[in-house]
Amino acid sequence: MTMQIADSVSLSSPDAKARAHAAAARDNLRTEPRAVRIVIITLAVLFLSVFVVLPLVVVFAQAFSKGILAYLAALAEPEALAAIKLTLLVAAISVGLNLVFGLVAAWAIAKFDFSGKTFLITLIDLPFSVSPVISGLVFVLLFGAQGYFGGWLRDHDIQILFAVPGIALATTFVTFPFVARALIPLMQEQGTQEEEAAISLGASGLQTFFRVTLPNIKWGVLYGVLLCNARAMGEFGAVSVVSGHIRGETNTMPLLVEILYNEYQFVAAFAIASLLAMLALITLIAKTVLERHLDEGQDASDH
């Protein structure tokens, strides 16, 4: 834009003086002197390199420091495989649950008016504002041996803490807001007119949801699921409290990374960490793609 203005000035002015003015005007549009610009950009690049790129490089460098065979051997350890399996299982459970909860919550908040709506929105955000460790402790208080339901659970021989259910519960709690948060603004912006149209055309509630509401928010749902999944796989604090760190049984990938690191098994620790780092990279790419789709959807609805 600025270039075009400057160019048209220089084209319409016959003499060199005017052209010089145009060039000066073009420079003035970027208000900072060249030296300042270079310093600022260098600082930004340095900062990003040290805090973002370097750690990522280090993870992979350490993981492959004893060669690719050692890396693969570390990943093939039964403990590592168990941790990967557990992490995938827990992520699948918590993403599945949060997909349903998030959809239901967002649908209720965006499409209906009821008292206590603001309170509900605040409540949905609670897991984000509480430290994950506290979230984990809540489950210990509820289901631990000394907890409220501890006695009953023991009598009925149900194991929640230090087992898959506890880890899944804690992860679900911590990641609850992602899907709902992604959908509420999207659904609020889309309003209720298409649903009203569907119902007046004779569609039932379920038909309206599956044929009209869901297709309109599918990219938003994927976006929420993606972020939810990334956090579920990477969650450390809450899971650490409820897991009990039983090797080969209740260690998720992040927990195993810490244990291996503390035992000076750097290659193994960073090998697992490299998997988490790759998950992060894939998530970022997918997020970018999804955001593009979300923007397009919005553009289409604007006209």
């Binding site: 149209a197 007046s200 044929r211 309109n216 289409a300």
Partner: peptide
């Protein structure tokens, strides 16, 4: 009842 909305409310997808 056939209802035509002010902003059409066509199903965008």
């Amino acid at each position: 009842v056939g209802f035509v909305f002010q902003h059409y409310a066509l199903f965008r997808h």
